[in-house]
Design a binder for these strands. Structure first.
Length: 485
RNA sequence: GCCCCCAUCGUCUAGAGGCCUAGGACAACACCCUUUCACGGUGUAGACAGCGAUUCGAAUUCGCUUGGGGGUACCA
């Protein structure tokens, strides 16, 4: 029972859920799924200044939208709560005192200025900065004096000098010389724990067995291991993932565009595609099939096979993948998701059935949902602007086609797409045989008249959605524009 | 400055000493399909950062160099 696998994601709510955090969450989730372990969500809101409730909500919503559901967390509870760090403030001093009493930590009365000076000295001598231990053996008299002055001590962890090694699940053996670390602060003088201390206490108490996180935490790891050991706790396994970089190889930040999962959703990306894409950053399927659900990925997942290098976030493949998901998605669901992107149009003009039809015939070229907006204006309104196709419509060919079309379409059944499809095919053949018009030339005339464009969705589908009256109205209007005007 | 991590096509990657004249996906380009755009199909081009060492043999092991990333806080 003590061997239960427990992993966690511990975002700090100082912003919306970052795509990088989402990837870390995914790998944790996959590991839990694969091993039958538990996936835990902990909110690290220690930094009251930057924490906002809307960010907490965003983190919850994004994780859920991505399908990364947690077994224990602030909202669902669990046996090792509370799962919100700000509710755990009374826990940390107890453990700090324990370390103090056992000689693993000591009070430090140094001021920022003193510390600053030590640091400058270190860079000047081309040495790593290590705290001087000035306060390690402070005399009781001096201590008294500091207290009288009103100074408040921080608590430092005493770092013994030795070589520390651990076996990283993704990077392999990692070595550190702890003499380069220096005695670090675990409790600030204001009584709150530092990050490195709080995580260890939380992870220990929550019985986290495997810590999978970004490689920006590698240098924190030896410090944390030291604390675990001093506390006599079992040291968890660690696995450090490479980071996601922007195309310019810098950290992915707001100036590169979308960074939060919710930003991507607003841009018209599907969460299924997003999570699939992000899984491929560092992981690759053994069967070569890259389009997979999270559960399918979990089956195939091996943490030691994750790439240990950084990867660059490029939109090309995401776009392709998003398009793949759009093409395969259930049409009703897709329509629901697309509606918010159609706010420019009066959707009451179309029945739900026709709206779905419209989505079905226009989804093919989409890469993001957002793009549909520019592809569908001709489905709405009575007339359509013809400026861009004026020349095309005033050719003899077009006039011929449109006249004949008007004549024939009177009798066509606009309710039946397949029939219309065949009628159009007949029309093409007729003009090809009689006048040698190319099939696409015939179609261009009709398309231009009805949609005001030379490209777009399948004509038969368009005609069915627009209906006979509006179609003929538009073709007549097209016949009345004059050449060169 | 100091410490740590990383290094295969433009990008994501396969590759765990001979199976590699280095495979796939996206992007690019060409052609085919076709009522347009697209989708789809078929092809083309494109990489082991450099140098040493180990070995009969290295993309795969080791060292150095270079390049990139991260950390260096009483932030998380």
């Amino acid at each position: 029972m003590t061997d239960e696998i427990r992993v966690r994601i511990a975002p700090s709510p100082s912003g919306n859920l970052h795509i990088g955090t989402a990837r870390t969450a995914l790998f944790n989730y996959l590991y839990a799924k694969k091993t039958g372990g538990k996936f835990i969500l902990r909110i690290e809101d220690t930094d009251a200044e930057r924490t906002k409730q809307e960010y907490i909500d965003n983190i919850f919503d994004s994780l859920k939208a991505l399908g990364l559901n947690w077994d224990e967390g602030p909202d669902v509870g669990g046996n090792y709560g509370p799962y919100t760090q700000s509710e755990r403030f009374d826990i940390y001093p107890k453990y700090a005192k324990m370390l103090l009493d056992n000689g693993y930590a000591y009070e430090c009365w140094c001021t920022n200025e003193e510390l600053e000076r030590e640091k400058e000295e270190a860079v000047k001598n081309h040495k790593a900065y290590v705290y001087s231990r000035k306060c390690l053996n402070i005399t009781p008299e001096l201590r008294e004096q500091y207290i009288k002055e009103g100074r408040k001590p921080s608590i430092r962890f005493k770092v013994d000098h030795r070589e520390l090694t651990f076996n990283d699940m993704v990077k392999g053996e990692l070595k550190f010389d702890t003499s380069l670390i220096g005695d670090f602060v675990i409790m600030k003088s204001n009584g709150t724990p530092t990050y490195n201390f709080a995580v260890v206490i939380d992870d220990m108490l929550m019985k986290i067995s495997h810590i999978i996180r970004g490689e920006d935490h590698i240098s924190n790891t030896p410090k944390q291991i030291l604390i675990y050991e001093a506390l006599g706790a079992k040291v968890p396994e660690f696995g450090h993932l490479g980071m996601i970089l922007a195309p310019d190889r810098s950290k992915l930040s707001k100036r590169h565009g979308a960074t939060a999962v919710s930003d991507f959703v607003k841009e018209g990306y599907l969460t299924d595609a997003l999570i699939n894409f992000v899984a491929l950053l560092g992981w690759s399927p053994s069967d070569g099939h890259e389009i997979k659900t999270v559960d399918e990925i979990a089956q195939d997942f091996r943490i030691n096979e994750i790439s240990s290098s950084n990867s660059i976030f490029e939109y090309d493949k995401l776009n392709w993948m998003n398009g793949q998901y759009i093409k395969k998605m259930d049409i009703k669901k897709l329509t629901d998701m697309i509606i918010p992107f159609l706010s420019d149009y009066d959707l009451s003009e179309l029945s739900r059935e026709k709206l779905e039809k419209m989505v079905e015939i226009t989804r093919e070229p989409l890469t993001t949902l957002k793009e549909i907006k520019d592809d569908v204006p001709y489905f709405f309104g009575e007339s359509v602007p013809l400026d861009e196709v004026k020349e095309l419509l005033t050719t003899e060919l077009s006039i011929n086609v449109l006249n004949r079309f008007n004549e024939l379409a009177q009798k066509w059944n606009f309710e039946d797409e397949e029939e219309i499809h065949n009628d159009l095919a007949d029309l093409r053949t007729e003009f090809k045989e009689k006048f040698g018009y190319k099939p696409k030339e015939t179609m261009w005339a009709i398309r231009a008249a009805v949609t005001g464009r030379t490209r777009g969705a399948d004509m038969a589908g368009i005609l069915v959605i627009i209906g006979k009256d509006k179609t003929l109205k538009r073709t007549n209007e097209a016949l009345h524009i004059k050449a060169g005007v």
